[in-house]
């Protein structure tokens, strides 16, 4: 037991959620630099009765706690709270607002595979996956959760210095009639119509179309 309110509360307590991986994070209480502060976390399912403990986040030093498993039913809404403990003192609980994974999770980018030939690039997209507890667990695609998931594919022609984009719903896209021997860069962002959701674009991937064999032949002649 500790003296409650003897310490200032942790601050900036929020959920960072990407593809339903829900991490509770917070900032240390002000004015306790250097002190060996530990933290304890609890969570609550909106509409139910009790606060629940997260045993792996009792008396921890770090300022984050993975609550993905406890908040994996994304149609529920949740609260979480954390308190700081130092020696025989502890802070009051600091609580999040109501967290709704279905609305608030960021949709990660798809996996992007590019292959080229002289004048075309084929783009194969693999939908981002929902967080899973163990790598060997079966995967759930975010597409299964958000049936209207689309992709905004943007293509940058480094030679003409022009960019254009295209919304696609299926997972393959062939860009034909491109310029041979040219470096093209591709970036893809997941998009779900509806409430404003943060999205993360994929890393830029660049690929060279091959040299045009016909031109090479002409040069030889």
């Amino acid at each position: 037991l500790c003296i409650s309110g003897g310490l200032p509360q942790p601050t900036n307590i929020t959920f960072l959620s990407i593809n339903m991986r829900n991490i509770l994070q917070w900032s240390p209480p002000e004015g306790l630099q250097g002190a060996e502060v530990t933290y304890t976390v609890q969570y609550f399912i909106y509409g139910q009765k009790k606060w629940l403990n997260k045993s792996e986040c009792r008396n921890i030093n770090r300022t984050c706690c993975d609550l993905s498993l406890e908040t994996s039913d994304y149609e529920h809404q949740y609260y979480a709270k954390v308190k700081a403990i130092w020696e025989r003192n502890c802070s009051k609980w600091a609580e999040t607002g109501r967290f709704y994974p279905f609305l608030e999770t960021q949709i990660g980018p798809p996996r992007v595979a590019l292959t080229t030939d002289e004048k075309s690039i084929s783009i194969v997209l693999t939908a981002p996956e929902k967080w899973k507890r163990n790598p060997e667990d079966s995967s759930i695609s975010m597409q299964q959760i958000y049936s209207n998931l689309k992709y905004n594919v943007s293509i940058y022609n480094t030679k003409s210095n022009r960019t254009w984009s295209q919304y696609v719903t299926n997972h393959t896209l062939v860009l034909s009639w491109l310029e041979p021997d040219t470096l093209y860069c591709v970036r893809v962002e997941s998009f779900v119509p509806g409430p404003p959701r943060l999205a993360q674009p994929s890393d830029k991937q660049c690929v060279h179309t091959l040299k045009d064999q016909a031109s090479a032949l002409k040069v030889k002649i």
Partner: peptide, 21 residues
Amino acid sequence: LWEAFSAMKDIQAKDNITSVR
């Protein structure tokens, strides 16, 4: 409608009866 709700989401903080949905 989503934009309207997002602008007033902090009304949820005024709901203290979290045991009822």
